[in-house]
Design a protein around this nucleic acid. Structure first.
Lengths: 248, 248
DNA sequence: CCGTACTAGTGGACTAGACCACTAGATTAC
DNA sequence: GTAATCTAGTGGTCTAGTCCACTAGTACGG
């Protein structure tokens, strides 16, 4: 118990206190320092960290949102059991998504171009007449088996120096966040079922016209600038999307 | 302007003030009394309604979560444009879902039974050995065209007197909330793509082996009691699921 | 004409309290 | 023994403020 006592807060930092607390607790829960069932009292937390209770509550509410903790009225707040199967729908890249599923992700870049995308894409990315986008086509593998076929368009002005080699090396989201200081905010996704085209079937090693899950995602930065439009074609027999819904 | 001045709060009600404010503003936005772009000031709202600013903020944060309003630092909070296509993933019944898409929902009950469900379902519903569930199979129509084929299992102890006629008349969720005082809390959904079986294809008027979106949902009450397990098979060519994702 | 400085207004973060309903365990009364 | 009561602790809600960074418009000075 009292693991939360070890949290050190930097009151002069630019990151808000509630966010520092949230991150610290998140780390402790994910690393098992705070065991499932462990109680976390709002008052105790606020006293130990010398912040007001409202600030502690704000930190906890974010963790509750993500299902890491749960609260029972009159009893207390407790660390939740780790549920691997269902997770809150977070904005994750393919690599992160697969790691959460316990699979090793890898990918093969099939095409890397800089071009003027078709009108529908350009509009979603809010590109001006003369602006271009990178078109990156990748085959996504999970434990070395094809899982998805993905085409993404990234607004070129955001990452003018993007190279094919960068994308081959690592996560696109990581590059954007670390190299170009683009902070990812939210995304809108559309999921639909379709039949694989001949080309998709071949690349994914499935039968032609087999069922695939098509996910079209538009990603925005924290300031709501559109960053990327991705169309991912997942193998219907190997991929499931999980979502947590709330009433009102 | 100043439409929010008309909100009447009941300070002695059991529903929290922030929730009353949230509901009132939600109604005003949905009915167009507050036009898109209209500014809503936290301080003005709190002064007009004679509540503290924190309470007003709490109401607004829920609306922001649902995308009904947006906030720009230093500028203000504004009513968002109505985006019909993408909506926050809320726990909605088929009827509500279709209405949001501007379609008229209807359904045909194909089967209504009370039975001991298979082990996997019974476990999800946390049924005891001797407890039963209602199995309801429905064909869901949108604007009179088949849209989904749905089988749901509802824990019988929760709504012992449920009749086939009730389900034929209206929304199951409405019956549970109004007749049996079951308050819906959240749900976990799994979405996957599959090929329609012969029976599904026939009922949905699509070709055999056409792509369908299979949604399996477990619904919980606010106290986390499992209520219902539903398996919905949507026509792949007519239905898309939309989701909003957030980063951290 | 163009910057610069001022100012009013905004949301973001935070505090230090308050009262309430609820839970669970201990104590007391019968 | 059992039922009623008390009590400490919990989260839920709410108040009435504070200070800060940011925005946008306005006035002023060169």
């Amino acid at each position: 118990m009292n693991a939360q006592a070890s949290v050190k807060l930097n009151k002069s930092s630019f990151t808000p206190l509630y966010h520092q607390i949230e991150q610290a607790l998140r780390r402790q829960i994910e690393q098992g320092e705070l065991a499932p069932g462990q109680a976390i009292s709002e008052r105790e937390l606020s006293e130990k960290l010398k912040v007001s209770r409202m600030t502690a509550r704000q930190a906890l509410s974010a963790l509750r949102e993500d299902g890491l903790i749960y609260t029972e009225r009159g009893r207390g707040t407790f660390v939740a059991e780790q549920k691997l199967t269902v997770h809150t729908r977070q904005l994750l890249g393919f690599t992160e998504d697969m790691r959460r599923r316990g699979l090793g992700a890898s990918s093969k870049v099939l095409a890397f171009r800089k071009l003027r995308p078709e009108a529908a894409i350009a509009e979603k990315l809010k590109l001006d007449e003369d602006e271009e986008a990178f078109e990156i086509t990748r085959l996504r593998l999970a434990d070395r088996v094809p899982m998805a076929y993905e085409t993404c368009f990234v607004a070129a002005p955001l990452c003018p120096k993007l190279k094919c080699a960068d994308v081959e090396r690592g996560s696109l989201y990581q590059i954007l966040e670390q190299e170009y200081d683009v902070r990812l905010g939210h995304a809108d996704e559309v999921l639909e079922a379709a039949c694989a085209t001949a080309r998709e079937a071949e690349l994914l090693s499935i039968k032609p016209r087999a069922a695939v899950l098509v996910v079209t995602r538009t990603v925005y930065a924290t300031d709501d600038t559109p960053i990327e439009v991705v169309r991912s074609v997942y193998r219907g027999d190997r991929y499931q999307a999980t979502i947590k819904l709330k009433r009102r």
